[in-house]
Nucleic acid binder design. Structure first.
Lengths: 343, 343
DNA sequence: CTGAAAGCGCTAACAT
DNA sequence: ATGTTAGCGCTTTCAG
């Protein structure tokens, strides 16, 4: 049996409310009494039961974060940034992994709901209607998608995807593939929309083909390699870096060289994309900023329930070594490195 | 205001205890009444408040998992396996990242303590005494270290490290380096102990040098490259795969080839180690099994407080492409691939 | 099978 | 500055 507030009260000869105050409103209690209480609490190994406290205050000072796949290197920067931001405000983050299973995601919302003051939900697959229902159980901020009526943080992948296409077109590519991600993903839709509506496509200058859906993993990329080869694309934009890296690996196995034969662009700019060979050209997502923003929105949402802001963060093309001149090889050399210098 | 049990009781014309039973002991309530209660609950969007329930039952059906660095690819398999095992037993896992900060780890134990039924602690740095103190706040299972009196799950890295040395010696290496991890890490001590006490070292057949401590990251490995070069090792065992991969990168920058000039062995067998070039020879840690075992121990620890088992899981050397013949090049070719075949 | 009452550990008015 | 009282949302005896 752990020590309760009552044990401390008895042992220090004061009422339980005094013990309570000694912890949660120290200025309201006489310095002497306070020290005595704190000392006996220490001696007895007493710790306020936060769950009991939360039951009455309504605040746990915890934040839940649900992600579909914690193994995806996209998440750590987001998680770390959220954590850092949360800690600055005296909050802690509890992360839960749904393993890409929407049913589990619902369960997790229930499990977390009363243990946290709100939940950051990064779930590309869950239906809007379900999310709306869940939002009655806990304050929700959705990340990487938009749900009507709910605060959200997204990254402007559309812009980044367009920059990627510009880059590839500038290198002389005319037959570009988009390696799509999972069906139903908001991000996937955004990218496809941006890519297929790019001005160069409208004028017929370049041709864009969509391949997918694919698993958003290295294996998904590896598996897609032969379709890419068969389709005859000279450049490919992948749904994310993991797929891009897998694709490069898969192409390599088929004897197709990157960027010699085919150029590949990823999305996310995960840490790994700097370490593979060739180093990956990619659309950098501001994941850390997204984590911070999501925490901020959740925490201020409490004070001001009227605003359900939809934040969109800018993305950025990072040109490395996985993209090169198209088939004619007559690209404007000035194109390389334009959007962002890379050490 | 969310709907409470009282709202449901009122709306369905029964006492709150009946509503309670309809949810937590359905067999104790008349089928008709139950359906009616459940229906109105559904209509009102009622969900039992798990925190309140836990306050009285003493069980949250949640498990905490504290890791030092969620970005370390060592963890995802452990987390996923723990999650899977937990879900089978109707539990959920909340993960918290301490960002390698022991003070944060303590905070996290406090924050999680009453929101979970127990905590799996993967903290290489926290002092034993602190962990013992924390174990009074929540049921604890420590992973990757042993703390007297507490249940623990470790992987037998000592055995794996010895296998790695055997492998390298078999390849003709005589001057082997151990790239140490963080100061104070239990795993680090185990590896160092195993390596420096290897029989070949005792007989003077080979020489082992220890470099470190180093940051257990790619950057740590990169930074160590020049020390490795200067020390003149022909083979290196790194504290983990991340460092090994970083080391290969760092050596490459110095014009040192792996495995041509220097052989490198990692530890963990993270997913990435199969995708780098050269593919990494490494000591495979059974991280998934460790995750499962930790959950099992925590959950059965509740029923039977007497046993504080210390589980040790076997490791396994996986030979890939980052190790090759030593300086004389007269290694027994049969040595390659002995411990485990790799597709 | 259902209701009444007590209480999990704590905080928050309200008194004094 | 401290004690009293009520009660957060729920489960669990105990009656009936």
């Amino acid at each position: 049996m752990p020590t309760t507030i009552r044990d401390v009260a008895r042992a220090s000869g004061v009422h339980i409310s005094t013990v309570s105050r000694a912890f949660s409103a120290p200025h309201l209690v006489n310095a002497e009494t306070r020290t005595k209480v704190l000392e006996t609490a220490e001696k007895l190994g007493y710790r306020p039961n936060r769950a009991a406290r939360a039951l009455i205050t309504g605040r746990t000072h915890n934040i839940g974060l649900i992600v579909a796949d914690i193994a995806n290197p996209f998440f750590p920067p987001l998680i770390k940034a959220a954590e850092r931001e949360a800690r600055l405000r005296d909050y802690h983050i509890f992360v839960a992994d749904s393993n890409e299973d929407v049913a589990v995601e619902e369960e997790l919302v229930h499990a977390l709901a009363k243990q946290v003051d709100g939940i950051l939900l990064v779930s590309p697959r869950l239906a809007n209607s379900v999310i709306e229902a869940l939002s009655r159980e806990a304050a929700l901020v959705v990340v990487n998608r938009q749900v009507p009526g709910l605060p959200s943080v997204v990254m402007d992948v559309g812009h980044g995807a367009r920059a990627a296409v510009d880059h590839l077109v500038g290198l002389g590519h005319k037959k570009i593939g988009f390696l799509g991600g999972p069906r139903g993903s908001w991000t996937n839709r955004e990218i496809r929309k941006a890519v297929t509506s790019a001005s160069q496509v409208r004028t017929g200058e370049v041709e864009i083909g969509v391949l997918g859906p694919n698993a958003p993993t290295e294996d998904g990329g590896i598996a897609a390699a032969e379709h890419v080869q068969r389709a005859g694309f000279t450049a490919v934009l992948a749904y994310n870096d993991l797929m891009a890296i897998g694709l490069i690996e898969g192409l390599d196995r088929l004897g197709v060289r990157v960027p010699g034969d085919v150029s590949v662009v990823g999305i996310d700019d995960i840490a790994l994309s700097r370490l593979t060979r060739p180093r990956l050209t990619t659309v950098a997502n501001p994941t850390a900023a997204a984590g911070r923003a999501a925490v901020d929105m959740l925490l201020q949402h409490g004070d001001d329930r009227r605003t359900t802001a939809q934040v969109s963060l800018a993305t950025d093309l990072v040109i490395r070594d996985s993209t090169g001149p198209g088939p004619q090889g007559d690209a404007d050399p000035g194109e390389r490195g334009t959007p962002r210098a890379e050490a």
